[in-house]
């Protein structure tokens, strides 16, 4: 069922990690004041080491302020790390997206939490989805139009949506447009930063269901960031728990839920379980 262009782990018996983070740290508040005095700074990430294998979904779980979005932005090349190394397919990944090759930028795609902010309100949806096609594949306007329609179908949206503006469609549909834009680049690694937490529950489910289907059909690797352990359990092969910038625990899903080792993981799990009556 897998489309031909997606063969990220063909013929690799023991696949090497697709993405490796070695001791990645990040600080906030490195901005200079007017007179060059350093602003207040705080550690956002401390010595985070992780690996993600081809075709794998790794969920990054933590409360707000735990540094999980920062991690996604560092991998996407949108924010510099203050220390550590990131390797992608065996090579070191340049920190700044502009210093990466076009192929690297194409293969690593990021989807943001809030589609209201991640889609340009002044661009029609077709233009938004078509831009990566133009940039990475140099498609002509006619080829783009055809591909945009395919992509809209892929995210279960009617093709006339290409002519609409983001504010003319619902929130869940907007997030699916953002997904279509990411898929347009034919990525290998998709960074999903809380992509359903701004959506209503049933809309959330429809977006997750769609992403699950796409993942199953394409073998995409996912770094799936969420604060909801249940969503992480639905989606992930492994779960990494982040607490105040430090990685507490990384474990396969069933292991983590059966025997959480870190006290914070245990507390998080307890907060997700119903207290008074079984669900």
């Amino acid at each position: 069922m897998r489309p031909a262009f997606y063969s990220p782990n063909a013929g690799a018996p023991a696949p090497l990690p697709l993405l490796t983070l070695e001791g990645v740290s990040a600080r906030y508040g490195q901005t200079r004041g007017l007179l060059g005095r350093p602003g207040a700074s705080a550690d956002v990430l401390r010595q985070v080491s992780l690996s993600l294998h081809p075709g794998e979904t790794l969920a990054l779980v933590g409360e707000s302020g735990s540094g999980k979005s920062t991690l996604a932005r560092i991998v996407a090349g949108l924010q510099p790390a203050s220390g550590g190394r990131i390797c992608y397919r065996g090579g070191e990944l340049p920190a700044d997206a502009h210093k990466r090759s076009a192929d690297l930028r194409r293969e690593i795609q990021i989807i943001f939490q809030n589609p209201d902010s991640s889609l340009n309100r002044r661009h029609r949806i077709g233009r938004t989805i078509g831009r990566p096609l133009e940039l990475f594949f140099g498609l002509s306007a006619r080829e783009r139009e055809k591909r945009v329609i395919d992509l809209l179908h892929a995210v279960r949206l009617p093709e006339d949506y290409a002519w609409r503006y983001p504010e003319e469609v619902s929130g869940g549909e907007r997030q699916r447009v953002a997904l279509a834009r990411a898929l347009a680049a034919q990525p290998r690694l998709l960074l999903c930063d809380e992509i359903v937490s701004a959506l209503d529950v049933s809309v959330q489910a429809s977006v997750l269901a769609l992403l699950g289907t796409i993942k199953a059909q394409t073998g995409l690797s996912l770094l799936f960031i969420t604060h909801d352990l249940a969503v992480a359990r639905w989606f992930a092969d492994r779960i990494a728990v982040l607490y105040r910038g430090e990685l507490c625990e990384v474990a396969p899903v069933e292991e983590l839920f059966a025997a959480p080792r870190h006290p914070y993981t245990q507390a998080l799990l307890a907060a997700h379980r119903p207290s008074t009556r079984p669900f």
Binding site: H153, Q204, G212, A216, T218
Partner: peptide, 29 residues
Amino acid sequence: AAVPRLDAPPPWRNGAERGDGLLPGVATL
């Protein structure tokens, strides 16, 4: 059914893993 629950698998997984042609667009990319 849409509520993410720790004690239940995602209800869509069956459909998705069968790859039942829900996404013709991706396959023709």
